[in-house]
Structures are given as structure tokens and as C-alpha cells.
Design a protein around this nucleic acid. Structure first.
Lengths: 205, 205, 205, 205
DNA sequence: AATGAATGAGACTTCATTCAT
DNA sequence: CATGAATGAAGTCTCATTCAT
């Protein structure tokens, strides 16, 4: 009755194949966009037949979902590694700068991914959920990291973190513009970091 | 692409018709997305025949272009009205807050428009140009407005404005999330405004 | 939101085209069966493009529905003309024989139609309904015709008519078998008619 | 079609497996129809791998053929048991009623099977042959049973038997309709049996 | 100029069958 | 012998665009 059963691959080869499809799709969705990519191209890029795709995924939208999941997982991992690497005794601005650089690197590599997927979230509830969960978890973690620091004002900390994250995000997003010179890019970074540090340090009555 | 000549309507009726198509498309693109909207629906919503659409527009993408043009024009006008209304002797934070509110209103009304069009800019060079031109012009104007004020540090003013604009943008974007309470929304606004004001006021060596 | 709108053709040309699609499908479904006929073939046989088919019909199953409707309408009309032609003062056996011949003719022309459509009724509720309605109406009419005749026993008349109809049906169905000689066929007819006449005339306590 | 050799299983395990496939298919074809059943489902229901199916059967159609063979064999056996149980000195109407009930039971259990397979016979010559052979053999046997009875008119006996069989068949087929009340069903049975008995007893000049 | 019916390429998806393991 | 992953042809349906009226 239900549509064709979806294989949950456990054997190594199957896992690899599923992964190859996701990565090929990731690549293509970034390069050409979701709607400009068809399943034949995905199969070809992944080196499999069109049919097999539907053994691993419900439909094309399901592929997108898994691709976004991968995208967010990569981003999460990158940020985690940054955060865990600096939680020692370094200053706040060092930490923020590290985050900025990490986010910037993500944006450089996957310039298209973010916007493409973000826009898809508008139309696909399941994707919206992924983004929401990602943000919630990330902010929660940031909160845990900063809640005990002396150099961070605890007033409205959650809200400040939320805003800080978005500022970093959009600044990095803007900074990848090819119209900017290296110097301008550096300036933007300094401004962004200091704005965020200020926001977090400042006491608000 | 096509060879058919595109009519540049001068007669009143023709102008109205063209306009109706753009507005209908605007509406539909926001509600359902570009790819989920077909030309038949556009024609129906605009109250014209499918055939006539191709007298006014090269193809579907061309409609999108005009829709984005309209979207940006509306946004520009809204911001202009804000800026011209406050350039008297009001304080900086008053001005920033007015901008925030205006941007927030835009986002509320056209929550989908921004993301949808922004993502389309990735795939369509012509749309990217529109966005770039919009931003350039807006920042230029802001610069003119603020370049002479005493309460604004002139150091790196262009870069600060650029960043400020993006901060306001993304904060408003975030603020429309239905998960936020009214109080949280207000807090976010205050934080955003004060962060931007700080950024603009602060002297940077 | 709903799938593409279905055109309800009123202009003569459109009606003709819709009709052509139905007749082409009728033909093909009989000749090759529903599942062995694809939409491209239907379009080709009807002399239209594949796309236009979906302007007139929801989907392939909808075409089948209309084809069955046509099939039953033709059959109904044929039986009606037989019944109205004999309701004067002719004997019962004359009437039954006329029905037999009419049904036999239907079966000869559309040998495949009946079985094909009948089997489809198993899987498609909508088609089952059509068959049921057809039979109910037909039996109702037969009842009106015979309820007043002296040569027909009124006891259990409705049930007898139901059975009679099925006997005629299946006998005709059997009679088209190419294995039968002309004489055998004639014999079967005589036996069938007399069995039905007997059934209707006989008083049952 | 294929060149692969089809195994004719002799070992017990192999026979069982082949049988399981046929029975699983029988079940599924009845429940969902031939075209709505795919080979993966068959294999799963039979508890075998998809690959092995093609060791025992030429192709999907071949499975259908064996399923129909099984269906007819079951029906034959049921009717045989009825006929052999009553050939002593019981009256004709007792015998006909027993047949009716047996056929009715078959139809109840396998309501879908009959129509589904019957319609398939239209498209697949091999299946048509099976049905034809079944009927011929059955009628032959009936003939042997009745050819010597005093209460059966020998005139046109073969033809009468043929018609009788079809009457019983289609009446049973009709009788399973869920729209009928128990009483109506009983009435139909009585009418059918008496019509058949009449047909067989009656001398025709 | 206007209509909306018509076109047909191409998208997604299914599934009978094969074949490497 | 057996498995079930893999294949790819073929089917249904959509929709941007054209064109006869």
C-alpha cells in the first residue's frame, strides 16, 4: 500500500552509495539549484542508475532533505570544533573572530548552499524544521559556553546570542561578494567582530 | 531568446495589463514560490489570457525580473520615506529605530518575497544585478544622509553602513519568526538598534 | 492548489476533440486492454498531442471512466430501442429474443469491452458505481414494462428480471466464442430465450 | 522469452518454494489485482528473494498462468467433490442446488479472482486456453453423469449443460453483491436452481 | 490586439528483470 | 543455489511557449 519501501542501508557498500547520491545532489543543488537539477543528473553524478535512487530516497524532495541535513551537520561540526578549541582562557574577541572565520569559510565553500536551502525552507516544512532545530541547538550550546564567563554580561544573554549569530551569519554572507577588495573584507570582519563583542560585553539595564 | 518583439506599452490599457500581470505574479510568487506558480495561474490571477503574457514579457523569468524590480522599488520607497521624514534634528537612535520598524513591516508583509527572490538571485544574473544596484544606491543615500552628522563617526563610515544595513535586515528577518513572543521581539529590536547605533557612533582608530 | 483545471468543453470543436479522445481510448482499451495502452498511443490515435489529453481529463483513470460511461450509454440506448420497439402487443418470447439479439450484437462488436471494463470495476470504485447504476436503471425500466403484462407472473418479478438479465448477458457472452458453429449458436439462443421466457411466465408460490 | 532455463523443481524444498510463490501471488492478485502487484511484493509475501522467482517462472505472466491453473484446479476439485457426492440416487434439483452452493462458496472466497483472471484471459492466449480446457472437461464430465439419467431429457443435452453451467456461474457471481439481503440471495438461488432444473428436465422437440 | 487551445519536450517515478556476490 | 542491489526502459503527467482563430 505504501509507496516502495525505502532501504535503510547498513552494509558498507550501501551506505557508501547512499552517501554518494547525497553528495552528488549537494554538489548539483549548489551549482545549479534544486529545480534545475533532475534525477537523471543526480544519478549520473553519483555514478548510479536512476532507479536505485528511489531505493534510498522517497522522492526528490527527500534527497533535498538529506542534503540539507548534511549541510547543517557539516556547519555544526565546523562551529563545534571552533568552540571547543577556544573555550580555554582566550578572550571573547578571539573566540568571536574564530567563529567569524569559520562561518566565512563555510560560506565561501558553499556560497550557494545557504541561500538555496534557506529559500527551500520557505516551501518545505520539513526543511524549515531542520533549520530551526539547528539554530536552537547551536544557541543552546553557545549559551552553555558563555553563561559562566566573567567577560560576558549575563543580561539578556540568550537574546544577544541569537542576534550575534545572525549578525555573524549575514556579515559572512555579505563578505563573500566578489565586489569587495581584500582590505574591505578585512575591515568588515573587524567591524563585525567588534560589534558582536561589544554587544555581548555590554551591560544592559 | 525569442524573436517576438516585446511590447513596451504606452497606452493606458496596456500599461494596466502589464501591471496586473506583475502584481499577480508578485502575489503568487510570494504565496507559493516561483517554481510552484505556472503561467496559467498568473494569467488567471491577472485576468488576462495566457497568450498575452508573452506580448509583455520575454518569458517567465522576465516576469520574475519585473516582480523583483517592483519589490525593490517598494522597499526603496518605504525606506526613502522613513529617511526623509527624520533627517531633521532627530537623534541617531530614533532614525535607526524607524528604519528597523520600516524594514520589519516589509518583512512581515512580504516574508516570503525576500528569501524567495534572494535565492533566485543566485541563479539569475539579472536579478543579482538588481539587488546589487539596490544596495549600492541605498547605501550611497545613507552615506549622504550621515556623512555630515556630528553624532556619527566618519571613520569607515561606508563599511559601517553596509554592515548596519545587513544587521537590520537579518534581525528583522529573524524577528518575524512565529516562535517569538511579543516581548522577545521587542528585546531583539532594542538590542539590534543599540548595536547599530553603537557601531555608527563609535570612533575607530 | 488543485491539480490542473479540467476544461469542460462547450464549443463544438472542443467537444469533438474530447469525444475523439474517448473514442480512441475505447478502441484501444478494447483492442489491447487498459494497462497495455499508454497515453501517448491514445493521443496519437485521437490525433492530438499528449498534453491536450490532460486538459480534458484528470488522468488516465478518468479517461477509463468516461469510456465506460460511453460503453454503458451505448448499451443502454441499444436496449432501450429494442424495448421501446416491442412494447406493443408482441409476445414475451419475441421480446426476449429481441433483447438477446441486441445484447449479442453488443457483445460481438465489443467482445473485449465488457470483460475488460467489468474487471476494472473490481479495482476502481467509480467504475463499479457506473455498472451498478446501469443495472439498477435497466431493471427498473424492465420492471415498468412487464409489471402490467398478463403473460408475466408478477410473483418475485424483480428478482426474476435480475436473473433473466444475467442469463441473457452471460449466454451472449458465451455465444461469441469462436469455437461454436452457427447451428450451436442458434441452439444456445433458443435454449436461452425459452429458459428466460419460462422463468418469467411461471407462477411461483 | 528469456533463455534462462526454468527449473522444474523436484526436491521437496524447491517444490515448496515454487508453491509458496504461486500461493502468495494468488493471494495478492485477488486482493489487489495483477497490475497492482509487483514482483517484489510477491517475493516478500512468499518469503523468498526476488531473484529466485525467475528460477521458477519465465516471467510475471508465467506466474499468472500458474495462479490461474491453481484457481481452476481448486474450483474443479470442489465441483468434482460435489458431483461425486451426489451421483447416487438423489434428485436432479438436489444436485443442481449442491453445485450452486459450491460455486457460490467459491465466488465468495475468491470474488475477485474470477473476474480478474477472466479478464486476463482476454489478453493472454495461454490463459484463455486454460479456461477453455477447464470448461470442456467439466462439461464432459457433467455429460457423463447426466447422460444416463431418466429425469434428464437427452435432447440437446450438451448445449443445455453448457447453458446451465453459465447460468449457475453468473447467478452466483451476481449473488455475492453486498447490496443483496439474505432473503433476496435465497430467492435468487431458488429461482436459479429451478430454472436450471426446468431447462434440463424439459423435453425440447 | 487578444484568446486559450494546442504542442511536445522533459520531469519524476516505477518495476520487470538481471547479475555480482 | 540464493540473494537483493542494481539497471534502465517506459509510463504518466506538467507546463512554458506558440499559434490558429
Amino acid at each position: 500500500m505504501a509507496t516502495t519501501e525505502i532501504r535503510v542501508p547498513k552494509q558498507e557498500r550501501a551506505v557508501k552509495k547512499r552517501d554518494a547520491i547525497i553528495r552528488a545532489s549537494y554538489e548539483l543543488f549548489c551549482r545549479k539549484g534544486y529545480y534545475q537539477t533532475n534525477t537523471a543528473q543526480i544519478a549520473k553524478e553519483a555514478g548510479v542508475s536512476t532507479g536505485i535512487v528511489y531505493s534510498y530516497f522517497q522522492d526528490k524532495e527527500d534527497i533535498l532533505l538529506q542534503v540539507v541535513r548534511l549541510y547543517l551537520a557539516e556547519l555544526k561540526e565546523a562551529l563545534d570544533s571552533v568552540l571547543s578549541g577556544v573555550d580555554s582562557g582566550r578572550g571573547l574577541s578571539y573566540m568571536v573572530e574564530a567563529c567569524y572565520e569559520r562561518l566565512y569559510a563555510s560560506h565561501t565553500m558553499r556560497a550557494e548552499a545557504h541561500d538555496e536551502f534557506w529559500a527551500m525552507a520557505l516551501r518545505k516544512e520539513a526543511i524549515k524544521e531542520l533549520f530551526k532545530a539547528f539554530e536552537t541547538e547551536l544557541l543552546q550550546e553557545l549559551y552553555r559556553k558563555l553563561a559562566c564567563r566573567q567577560d560576558v554580561s549575563q543580561t539578556l544573554l540568550r537574546e544577544k546570542l541569537r542576534l550575534s549569530y545572525h549578525i555573524l551569519e549575514c556579515s559572512c554572507h555579505d563578505a563573500i561578494s566578489p565586489d569587495l577588495s581584500k582590505a574591505e573584507r578585512e575591515t568588515l570582519k573587524q567591524l563585525t567582530v567588534s560589534a558582536v563583542v561589544d554587544l555581548l560585553e555590554r551591560k544592559i539595564n
